[in-house]
Design a protein around this nucleic acid. Sequence first.
DNA 1: GTTCCGCATGAATCGATAG
DNA 2: ACTATCGATTCATGCGGAA
Lengths: 286, 286
Amino acid sequence: MQINTRLILGDSAKELKKLNDNSVDLIFTSPPYADQRKSTYGGITPEEYVNWFLPIGEELLRVLKPDGTFILNIKEKVSEGERSTYVLELILEMRKQGWLWTEEFIWHKKNSYPGKWSNRFRDSWERLLQFNKNRKFNMYQDEVRVPVGDWAKGRLRNLSATDQRRDNAKNGSGFGKNVSNWVGRELVYPTNVLHLATECSNKNHSAAFPRELPEWFIKLFTKEGDTVLDPFAGSGTTLEVAQQMRRHSIGIEIVPEYFQMMQQQIEPVNLYLFEPESVYESTPFK
Amino acid sequence: MQINTRLILGDSAKELKKLNDNSVDLIFTSPPYADQRKSTYGGITPEEYVNWFLPIGEELLRVLKPDGTFILNIKEKVSEGERSTYVLELILEMRKQGWLWTEEFIWHKKNSYPGKWSNRFRDSWERLLQFNKNRKFNMYQDEVRVPVGDWAKGRLRNLSATDQRRDNAKNGSGFGKNVSNWVGRELVYPTNVLHLATECSNKNHSAAFPRELPEWFIKLFTKEGDTVLDPFAGSGTTLEVAQQMRRHSIGIEIVPEYFQMMQQQIEPVNLYLFEPESVYESTPFK
DNA sequence: GTTCCGCATGAATCGATAG
DNA sequence: ACTATCGATTCATGCGGAA
């Protein structure tokens, strides 16, 4: 199967209009955060932020498949000693647009940005807001199971004898099922807190988030051959990961510098030859 | 110095009116969360929640000292497949009342409630919203510094088997060096994420949160002889901790059962005899 | 005296069933 | 149709009794 990675230089508000309705399985993005300094490129002030984002949210709602998911990585900055409220307002407004606010994951950063202030500690977490179009959506939970916590090592070692007995007793009649239950018992489902380190600066350009972050959500909400969209692609981490995981992807980036960085990093068309029948499915492009 | 712990049976909306303006240094509380079922304790629906809380917020703003802090422990529940938005709305409304939303701490629960659903993982975190009356407030950061060794310990504990082996392999020759490195290591400031386990069942009385939670904020925002207020005292964990830390405290609880539990747990007036001159400072009661 | 194992139990959520 | 109740699911933790 052929995996397509499409890079677009331009403004998301405009470029998204060129995508078809209901054509994307997962949107994962980390938009530019609001910033007081107007000098920075794309500098959107906290006051403008919601109105700036909403037209894009509208388009994202259109291009997402009914059973798709939108993950928005965001964190409000401090402004005049307070946390800004634009993220809260954004959630409320997006619900009015028709989004369901399904969940809020937390990225608990193991190594947060250093610093010291008299009235505040280092900020060590970010929001990962999950939005959906419907209550039913695709979620492949088994793909992200993690090794069971440490406690089990000491206690679960010789579970066979007693625990199987207990299991049988509970089930009562049926006794065929239990063995398979305990196979691979080392894996448990994760929670809505992701405890990851921020990416070390071993690459020339440091991404806003570590590769594990998009990887986890791509695993969880898509399968091979699905399409991932990042409307604020930045240096292209999301797309790079999506490609390696054999998902089609589309990235939009307005800053030429970042766009070129992406182009150098990513092969636009990546052929996986071990599945030769090149079934070219419905493309998300009009 | 005499430490006063005052327990009040009644409705916070009314009882708070009996407290003086600007008389409390820290408010730490965990109000009943909104609930679909009307039969249970508190029984406030998500729709009613903001309007129910706001009059209490008004009184809390009045009784808090100008340089005091209000910590609100809360988490929205799921309702019809979505996270409810009442907490977001509450923050926005409290700002209109005059509160500053200074910070949002995260309580990352090590042991979250179990369960499995097709569209959601276990909820493993709660909000600790920090509100203030002014940009300047008392914060004793040095009181909550943690040894670097703490995370090192946790890390070694978690990754026991394989990682210790790997660690040895890395160190290669010298195996005496590493341990002494962490002894007496300098204290560092924490972040805005608290990683604690929930207090589990088998203790005499189980609280909604572990003792470490109020303890940490009492250390951070008050000094000995200051006054702590919990308008939803529940089983009295906050007050108990405050008393042991030699802070005055006031607890209000509407459910007689919980109130009696507090009374049994806490000595109303606790004399610390090793400071005999009983300086009776300004009382917060009218 | 340690270490180990069994058991109970949580600020939960969904879907089916019953009134 | 709409609401209240109930069972099923699941994992980290502390306590108590056993090895």
